[in-house]
Protein backbone atom coordinates (compact mmCIF):
# COMPACT_ATOMS: atom_id res chain seq x y z
CA UNK A 1 0.00 0.00 0.00
CA UNK A 2 2.72 2.34 1.09
CA UNK A 3 4.82 1.35 -1.89
CA UNK A 4 2.08 2.18 -4.36
CA UNK A 5 1.72 5.59 -2.77
CA UNK A 6 5.44 6.15 -2.87
CA UNK A 7 5.59 5.32 -6.55
CA UNK A 8 2.73 7.68 -7.24
CA UNK A 9 4.49 10.47 -5.37
CA UNK A 10 7.63 9.95 -7.41
CA UNK A 11 5.66 9.94 -10.66
CA UNK A 12 3.80 13.08 -9.72
CA UNK A 13 7.00 14.92 -8.91
CA UNK A 14 8.50 13.92 -12.21
CA UNK A 15 5.46 14.91 -14.21
CA UNK A 16 5.19 18.24 -12.44
CA UNK A 17 8.82 19.27 -12.64
CA UNK A 18 10.35 17.52 -15.57
CA UNK A 19 12.23 19.53 -18.18
CA UNK A 20 12.72 18.47 -21.78
CA UNK A 21 16.44 17.92 -21.37
CA UNK A 22 17.83 14.67 -22.72
CA UNK A 23 18.27 13.06 -19.33
CA UNK A 24 14.61 13.71 -18.51
CA UNK A 25 13.34 11.40 -21.22
CA UNK A 26 14.42 8.22 -19.49
CA UNK A 27 11.69 8.10 -16.83
CA UNK A 28 9.30 6.06 -18.95
CA UNK A 29 12.00 3.45 -19.40
CA UNK A 30 12.41 3.14 -15.65
CA UNK A 31 8.64 2.68 -15.23
CA UNK A 32 8.63 -0.11 -17.78
CA UNK A 33 11.57 -1.85 -16.14
CA UNK A 34 9.88 -1.59 -12.73
CA UNK A 35 6.71 -3.16 -14.11
CA UNK A 36 8.70 -5.96 -15.72
CA UNK A 37 10.39 -6.64 -12.38
CA UNK A 38 7.06 -6.98 -10.60
CA UNK A 39 5.63 -9.28 -13.26
CA UNK A 40 8.78 -11.41 -13.34
CA UNK A 41 8.72 -11.83 -9.58
CA UNK A 42 5.17 -13.14 -9.65
CA UNK A 43 5.78 -15.40 -12.63
CA UNK A 44 8.81 -16.93 -10.97
CA UNK A 45 6.76 -17.54 -7.84
CA UNK A 46 4.33 -19.56 -9.92
CA UNK A 47 6.95 -21.38 -11.94
CA UNK A 48 9.35 -22.32 -9.17
CA UNK A 49 6.84 -23.44 -6.61
CA UNK A 50 8.24 -23.90 -3.12
CA UNK A 51 4.82 -22.67 -2.04
CA UNK A 52 3.62 -22.25 1.47
CA UNK A 53 0.34 -21.19 3.02
CA UNK A 54 -2.87 -23.06 2.49
CA UNK A 55 -5.17 -20.88 0.40
CA UNK A 56 -4.66 -22.77 -2.85
CA UNK A 57 -5.79 -20.73 -5.81
CA UNK A 58 -4.71 -22.98 -8.64
CA UNK A 59 -3.62 -26.56 -8.39
CA UNK A 60 -0.96 -27.11 -11.03
CA UNK A 61 0.73 -30.48 -11.42
CA UNK A 62 4.25 -30.54 -10.07
CA UNK A 63 6.82 -31.47 -12.67
CA UNK A 64 9.29 -33.99 -11.32
CA UNK A 65 12.90 -32.97 -11.77
CA UNK A 66 15.97 -35.21 -11.87
CA UNK A 67 17.94 -35.76 -8.69
CA UNK A 68 20.65 -33.19 -9.26
CA UNK A 69 18.03 -30.44 -9.09
CA UNK A 70 16.81 -31.60 -5.70
CA UNK A 71 15.30 -28.78 -3.69
CA UNK A 72 13.87 -27.06 -6.75
CA UNK A 73 10.25 -27.66 -7.56
CA UNK A 74 8.64 -26.71 -10.83
CA UNK A 75 5.02 -25.54 -10.76
CA UNK A 76 2.94 -27.27 -8.13
CA UNK A 77 -0.03 -25.74 -6.30
CA UNK A 78 -0.18 -21.94 -6.34
CA UNK A 79 -1.16 -20.36 -3.06
CA UNK A 80 -2.35 -16.81 -2.65
CA UNK A 81 0.12 -16.25 0.19
CA UNK A 82 3.20 -16.97 -1.85
CA UNK A 83 1.76 -15.14 -4.83
CA UNK A 84 1.21 -12.04 -2.73
CA UNK A 85 4.64 -12.42 -1.23
CA UNK A 86 6.14 -12.42 -4.69
CA UNK A 87 4.05 -9.41 -5.63
CA UNK A 88 5.14 -7.41 -2.56
CA UNK A 89 8.72 -8.41 -3.13
CA UNK A 90 8.57 -7.28 -6.72
CA UNK A 91 6.86 -4.05 -5.77
CA UNK A 92 9.62 -3.23 -3.31
CA UNK A 93 12.21 -3.52 -6.03
CA UNK A 94 9.94 -1.76 -8.51
CA UNK A 95 9.38 1.21 -6.22
CA UNK A 96 13.12 1.47 -5.69
CA UNK A 97 13.64 1.57 -9.44
CA UNK A 98 10.96 4.19 -9.95
CA UNK A 99 12.51 6.40 -7.26
CA UNK A 100 15.96 6.09 -8.79
CA UNK A 101 14.46 6.83 -12.17
CA UNK A 102 12.71 9.91 -10.82
CA UNK A 103 15.95 11.22 -9.34
CA UNK A 104 17.72 10.49 -12.59
CA UNK A 105 15.23 12.24 -14.81
CA UNK A 106 14.98 15.34 -12.62
CA UNK A 107 18.60 15.90 -11.71
CA UNK A 108 20.97 17.53 -14.11
CA UNK A 109 24.13 15.45 -13.83
CA UNK A 110 26.32 18.41 -14.70
CA UNK A 111 25.08 20.42 -11.75
CA UNK A 112 25.68 17.50 -9.48
CA UNK A 113 29.25 17.50 -10.73
CA UNK A 114 29.64 21.13 -9.77
CA UNK A 115 29.00 20.18 -6.15
CA UNK A 116 31.79 17.62 -5.97
CA UNK A 117 34.94 18.37 -4.01
CA UNK A 118 37.70 19.61 -6.32
CA UNK A 119 39.81 16.50 -5.84
CA UNK A 120 37.09 14.33 -7.36
CA UNK A 121 36.33 16.77 -10.16
CA UNK A 122 38.20 14.98 -12.92
CA UNK A 123 36.80 11.55 -12.13
CA UNK A 124 33.37 13.14 -11.86
CA UNK A 125 33.66 14.76 -15.28
CA UNK A 126 34.46 11.43 -16.86
CA UNK A 127 31.40 9.87 -15.24
CA UNK A 128 29.10 12.71 -16.26
CA UNK A 129 30.27 12.59 -19.87
CA UNK A 130 29.77 8.84 -19.93
CA UNK A 131 26.23 9.36 -18.62
CA UNK A 132 25.40 12.01 -21.16
CA UNK A 133 26.47 9.64 -23.92
CA UNK A 134 23.34 7.50 -23.56
CA UNK A 135 20.72 9.99 -24.68
CA UNK A 136 23.01 10.91 -27.57
CA UNK A 137 23.26 7.26 -28.54
CA UNK A 138 19.48 6.98 -28.52
CA UNK A 139 19.30 9.98 -30.84
CA UNK A 140 21.86 8.50 -33.26
CA UNK A 141 20.09 5.15 -33.29
CA UNK A 142 16.87 6.83 -34.34
CA UNK A 143 18.60 8.79 -37.08
CA UNK A 144 20.47 5.79 -38.46
CA UNK A 145 17.39 3.55 -38.40
CA UNK A 146 15.51 6.12 -40.39
CA UNK A 147 18.35 6.49 -42.86
CA UNK A 148 18.63 2.73 -43.21
CA UNK A 149 15.11 2.49 -44.56
CA UNK A 150 16.23 4.72 -47.42
CA UNK A 151 18.48 1.90 -48.54
CA UNK A 152 15.62 -0.56 -48.62
CA UNK A 153 17.13 -2.66 -45.92
CA UNK A 154 15.32 -5.86 -44.98
CA UNK A 155 15.95 -4.77 -41.39
CA UNK A 156 15.90 -8.07 -39.49
CA UNK A 157 18.40 -10.29 -37.77
CA UNK A 158 22.01 -9.93 -36.71
CA UNK A 159 22.95 -8.13 -39.93
CA UNK A 160 20.43 -5.37 -39.28
CA UNK A 161 21.76 -4.87 -35.78
CA UNK A 162 25.26 -4.48 -37.15
CA UNK A 163 24.03 -2.00 -39.74
CA UNK A 164 22.74 0.19 -36.95
CA UNK A 165 25.53 -0.35 -34.47
CA UNK A 166 28.44 0.46 -36.79
CA UNK A 167 27.35 3.99 -37.82
CA UNK A 168 26.06 4.76 -34.33
CA UNK A 169 29.28 3.79 -32.62
CA UNK A 170 31.35 5.71 -35.14
CA UNK A 171 29.20 8.73 -34.50
CA UNK A 172 29.54 8.34 -30.73
CA UNK A 173 33.28 7.98 -31.00
CA UNK A 174 33.60 11.06 -33.17
CA UNK A 175 31.46 13.07 -30.77
CA UNK A 176 33.49 12.00 -27.77
CA UNK A 177 36.74 12.88 -29.49
CA UNK A 178 35.40 16.29 -30.47
CA UNK A 179 34.27 16.95 -26.91
CA UNK A 180 37.56 15.77 -25.46
CA UNK A 181 39.51 17.96 -27.86
CA UNK A 182 37.35 20.94 -27.00
CA UNK A 183 37.76 20.40 -23.27
CA UNK A 184 41.48 20.00 -23.60
CA UNK A 185 41.74 23.12 -25.76
CA UNK A 186 39.95 25.04 -23.05
CA UNK A 187 42.28 24.02 -20.31
CA UNK A 188 40.46 21.12 -18.69
CA UNK A 189 42.72 19.29 -16.29
CA UNK A 190 45.42 21.95 -15.99
CA UNK A 191 47.36 21.12 -12.89
CA UNK A 192 48.64 23.70 -10.49
CA UNK A 193 52.20 23.86 -9.29
CA UNK A 194 52.49 21.32 -6.56
CA UNK A 195 55.82 19.90 -5.49
CA UNK A 196 56.55 16.19 -5.68
CA UNK A 197 56.67 15.60 -1.89
CA UNK A 198 53.23 17.15 -1.50
CA UNK A 199 51.89 14.88 -4.18
CA UNK A 200 53.30 11.90 -2.31
CA UNK A 201 51.69 13.07 0.93
CA UNK A 202 48.34 13.39 -0.83
CA UNK A 203 48.55 9.91 -2.28
CA UNK A 204 49.51 8.33 1.03
CA UNK A 205 46.71 10.11 2.87
CA UNK A 206 44.08 9.01 0.35
CA UNK A 207 45.18 5.38 0.29
CA UNK A 208 45.48 5.14 4.06
CA UNK A 209 42.06 6.73 4.44
CA UNK A 210 40.47 4.26 2.07
CA UNK A 211 42.06 1.27 3.82
CA UNK A 212 40.82 2.60 7.15
CA UNK A 213 37.31 2.99 5.81
CA UNK A 214 37.28 -0.54 4.42
CA UNK A 215 38.54 -2.21 7.57
CA UNK A 216 36.27 -0.06 9.73
CA UNK A 217 33.09 -0.78 7.85
CA UNK A 218 33.89 -4.47 7.71
CA UNK A 219 34.37 -4.61 11.45
CA UNK A 220 31.24 -2.55 11.95
CA UNK A 221 29.05 -4.86 9.89
CA UNK A 222 30.59 -8.18 10.94
CA UNK A 223 29.76 -8.71 14.57
CA UNK A 224 32.38 -11.47 14.96
CA UNK A 225 35.26 -9.10 14.20
CA UNK A 226 36.95 -7.43 17.16
CA UNK A 227 34.88 -4.38 17.95
CA UNK A 228 38.01 -2.38 18.75
CA UNK A 229 38.47 -2.07 15.01
CA UNK A 230 35.02 -0.82 14.18
CA UNK A 231 34.50 2.75 15.27
CA UNK A 232 38.11 3.93 15.64
CA UNK A 233 39.06 2.62 12.21
CA UNK A 234 35.98 4.12 10.62
CA UNK A 235 36.58 7.53 12.14
CA UNK A 236 40.30 7.40 11.44
CA UNK A 237 39.63 6.46 7.84
CA UNK A 238 37.23 9.33 7.35
CA UNK A 239 39.68 11.82 8.84
CA UNK A 240 42.54 10.62 6.65
CA UNK A 241 40.42 10.59 3.53
CA UNK A 242 39.16 14.12 4.15
CA UNK A 243 42.72 15.30 4.69
CA UNK A 244 43.69 13.61 1.44
CA UNK A 245 40.89 15.35 -0.43
CA UNK A 246 41.85 18.72 0.96
CA UNK A 247 45.49 18.38 -0.09
CA UNK A 248 44.50 16.94 -3.46
CA UNK A 249 42.10 19.83 -3.91
CA UNK A 250 45.01 22.26 -3.55
CA UNK A 251 46.54 20.77 -6.64
CA UNK A 252 43.55 21.91 -8.66
CA UNK A 253 43.55 25.56 -9.60
CA UNK A 254 39.98 25.47 -10.78
CA UNK A 255 37.47 28.00 -9.53
CA UNK A 256 33.73 28.09 -9.70
CA UNK A 257 31.52 30.52 -11.52
CA UNK A 258 28.33 31.20 -9.59
CA UNK A 259 28.33 28.20 -7.27
CA UNK A 260 24.89 26.84 -6.45
CA UNK A 261 23.54 28.45 -3.34
CA UNK A 262 21.06 27.01 -0.91
CA UNK A 263 17.92 29.03 -1.50
CA UNK A 264 14.46 28.47 0.04
CA UNK A 265 13.35 26.03 -2.65
CA UNK A 266 16.44 23.87 -2.28
CA UNK A 267 16.25 24.00 1.52
CA UNK A 268 12.56 23.10 1.48
CA UNK A 269 13.12 20.21 -0.86
CA UNK A 270 16.00 18.77 1.09
CA UNK A 271 14.03 19.44 4.31
CA UNK A 272 10.98 17.52 3.18
CA UNK A 273 13.24 14.71 2.08
CA UNK A 274 14.76 14.43 5.54
CA UNK A 275 11.34 14.79 7.17
CA UNK A 276 9.95 11.97 5.06
CA UNK A 277 12.86 9.75 5.99
CA UNK A 278 12.61 10.48 9.72
CA UNK A 279 8.83 10.19 9.89
CA UNK A 280 8.80 7.00 7.91
CA UNK A 281 11.46 5.42 10.12
CA UNK A 282 9.50 6.37 13.25
CA UNK A 283 6.23 5.17 11.78
CA UNK A 284 7.70 1.86 10.77
CA UNK A 285 9.29 1.33 14.18
CA UNK A 286 5.86 1.79 15.74
CA UNK A 287 4.00 -0.40 13.31
CA UNK A 288 6.39 -2.83 11.61
CA UNK A 289 3.44 -4.59 10.02
CA UNK A 290 2.99 -1.61 7.68
CA UNK A 291 6.34 -2.30 6.08
CA UNK A 292 6.41 -6.09 6.19
CA UNK A 293 2.90 -6.98 5.21
CA UNK A 294 1.78 -10.43 6.20
CA UNK A 295 0.57 -12.02 2.99
CA UNK A 296 -2.40 -13.54 4.79
CA UNK A 297 -4.00 -10.26 5.79
CA UNK A 298 -5.11 -7.08 4.03
CA UNK A 299 -2.15 -4.62 3.94
CA UNK A 300 -2.16 -2.36 6.96
CA UNK A 301 -1.58 1.36 6.90
CA UNK A 302 -0.84 3.74 9.71
CA UNK A 303 -1.69 7.40 9.75
CA UNK A 304 1.85 8.50 10.48
CA UNK A 305 3.29 6.52 7.58
CA UNK A 306 0.68 7.96 5.26
CA UNK A 307 1.54 11.50 6.32
CA UNK A 308 5.23 10.75 5.89
CA UNK A 309 4.86 9.62 2.31
CA UNK A 310 2.43 12.33 1.32
CA UNK A 311 4.87 14.93 2.59
CA UNK A 312 7.07 13.94 -0.32
CA UNK A 313 4.62 15.60 -2.70
CA UNK A 314 5.39 19.06 -1.35
CA UNK A 315 8.43 19.78 -3.53
CA UNK A 316 6.42 18.92 -6.63
CA UNK A 317 4.47 22.11 -6.08
CA UNK A 318 6.73 24.22 -3.91
CA UNK A 319 9.69 24.33 -6.27
CA UNK A 320 9.88 26.70 -9.22
CA UNK A 321 8.95 25.34 -12.60
CA UNK A 322 11.82 24.36 -14.83
CA UNK A 323 12.24 27.36 -17.04
CA UNK A 324 14.42 27.44 -20.11
CA UNK A 325 17.47 27.41 -17.93
CA UNK A 326 16.08 24.30 -16.26
CA UNK A 327 16.94 24.67 -12.62
CA UNK A 328 15.22 21.40 -12.03
CA UNK A 329 17.32 19.19 -9.94
CA UNK A 330 16.08 20.51 -6.64
CA UNK A 331 13.25 18.02 -6.72
CA UNK A 332 15.39 14.96 -6.88
CA UNK A 333 16.41 14.87 -3.27
CA UNK A 334 13.11 13.75 -1.74
CA UNK A 335 12.95 10.97 -4.27
CA UNK A 336 16.36 9.76 -3.18
CA UNK A 337 15.42 10.04 0.44
CA UNK A 338 12.10 8.31 0.01
CA UNK A 339 13.96 5.48 -1.49
CA UNK A 340 16.00 5.16 1.67
CA UNK A 341 12.84 5.30 3.70
CA UNK A 342 11.23 2.60 1.62
Amino acid sequence: MLLVLLTLVACLTVVARRSDAPWALSFRLYLVVALVVVVLRVVFRVLLGGQYGDTVLLDLPEIPLPDFAAGITLLGPVTSESLLFGLYDGMRLGALLVCVGAANSLANPKRLLASLPPALYEVGTAVVIALSLFPQLAESVQRVRRARRLRGDPGRGIGALRRIVVPVLEDALERSLALAASMDARGYGRSGNLSAPWRRVTGTLLVAGLVGLCVGSYAFLDSTAPQVLAWPMLVGGVVLAVAGFVTAGRRVTRTRYRPDRWRPAELLTAGTGIAVAVLATVALRQRPDVAYTDPATWPALSGLALVAVLLGVVPAFATPLPADQARTDAADEPAAREEVAA
Partner: peptide
Protein backbone atom coordinates in the same frame (compact mmCIF):
# COMPACT_ATOMS: atom_id res chain seq x y z
CA UNK B 1 32.58 30.65 -17.81
CA UNK B 2 33.83 27.09 -18.32
CA UNK B 3 37.25 27.96 -19.66
CA UNK B 4 37.82 30.57 -16.96
CA UNK B 5 36.94 28.03 -14.28
CA UNK B 6 39.65 25.79 -15.65
CA UNK B 7 42.14 28.66 -15.51
CA UNK B 8 41.19 29.29 -11.90
CA UNK B 9 40.20 32.94 -12.20
CA UNK B 10 38.56 34.89 -9.39
CA UNK B 11 34.73 34.82 -9.38
Amino acid sequence: AYGMEQLGLEP
